[in-house]
Design a protein around this nucleic acid. Structure first.
Lengths: 209, 209
DNA sequence: TGTACATCAGTGAACGCGCGTTCACTGATGTAC
DNA sequence: TGTACATCAGTGAACGCGCGTTCACTGATGTAC
């Protein structure tokens, strides 16, 4: 046997992780296979020992990016109550540092439309990662009391929260005016916190179902 | 003199409109100059009589798409009260027909990230069109009474509404599961209507400022 | 423990292709007389 | 009203370039003996 299977797995994973970053920063069409392999410390020819096509990598990288960014966001949620945890989540997601660093951030906001137009495999892989993420968030917001809404309602709420914040982040990035961009982030932090991390009765957004 | 200036203006406008549709449907990188000119009934060489570069067209097409889609959305809002008008707006924006027809729909949801990575001119042109759109919506929601929030607060609310709906639309498109996609649209219609088109006191989202 | 061998991850030149852009041209047009 | 002319929107062949993919190869490796 030549090199070990673990070594091959590691190389593949390195390429996928490099791609997950590069795609979010420069777009899927903006990153070539040769460019990517160089960044991973290899030459372009070896690419096809790991992937059947660029599209094969795209599917893996989109799922990987989703998993990475959600993990780093979820990692910050060690709060005592679900509301406090979600409030932390919202503050991190709608931060200026997230806005200014798409490479490690939310895939929906950086690659959403490209995935929509992508291959069935890409959409499938991404959807699966997104569903797992939303389910995890929905579990987190479950408080196991009598008025705890159904799991489906909690999932719907998390789809709303996540998609709404992704839209706000996207608009804050697209806008060519730093003051307006900051205003959008600030207003969104307030709005989503009030709607999804404030159980004191008056909340309109949580639960929505 | 050769052909009239009006004729040239019309040809240019035809190309811009064709591009505004094609870009939203297939992405900016997914549409070539030659392809576009063919669709407009011309050959590719003539392109440079109207635009300095593809990028020049992209800037014009993104602004055009924003203006077109906002106009068609605003056209449906002839209601007696601002709340009823916004409710109509939300219902149209978060409809299945909008989800299934990106070519004539919201530019944020179809091209947002590509514009973020685009040229300064593209972001500038798009930002201007977006600002005009939001100002128009903010004017519409003004009810001229004592507790009418400031224009800035009303604009912030409209940025939130628009970006949030764009995110929901985007996620409903990206998801590879018709049932989940429909659920997201339905939940979003409910949530944004309650938050932005319901002045009966309990609303958390309007005004946000 | 030492050697011969089969494996296959990774190399790098080469491919066809479509892209944005250029350029010499053509021919329909509005204007001047 | 009719004709000669200058203009320039639009044509279509050609360009250099970077893309995704292929392919004959190399050489470090784990295994068999």
């Amino acid at each position: 046997m030549p090199l070990s299977k673990a070594h091959k797995r590691e190389t593949r994973q390195r390429v996928v992780r490099t791609a997950a970053h590069a795609f979010r920063a420069r777009g899927i069409d903006g990153v070539g296979v040769a460019d990517l392999m160089r960044q991973a410390g290899l030459t372009h020819g070896g690419f096809y020992a790991h992937f059947r096509s660029k599209d094969d990598l795209v599917a893996a990288a989109c799922a990987e990016g989703m998993i990475e960014s959600s993990a780093s966001l979820l990692a910050g949620m060690k709060e005592a109550t679900a509301d406090a945890g979600i409030a932390t989540f919202i503050r991190s997601y709608l931060s200026r540092s997230h806005r200014d660093d798409p490479a490690t951030g939310c895939v929906i906001a950086s690659l959403g439309p490209e995935i929509v137009r992508g291959s069935p495999q890409t959409r499938r892989a991404f959807t699966e990662a997104l569903k797992r993420y939303v389910a995890e968030l929905a579990d987190y917001t479950s408080d196991e009391t009598a008025d705890d809404p159904s799991e489906e309602a909690r999932e719907d709420a998390m789809y709303l929260l996540l998609s709404g914040m992704a839209g706000a982040l996207l608009v804050s990035r697209v806008v060519d005016d730093a003051a307006v961009s900051d205003r959008i982030l600030r207003a969104a932090r307030r709005f989503y916190t009030k709607s999804f991390a404030d159980s004191d009765g008056i909340s309109a957004g949580r639960p929505v179902g």
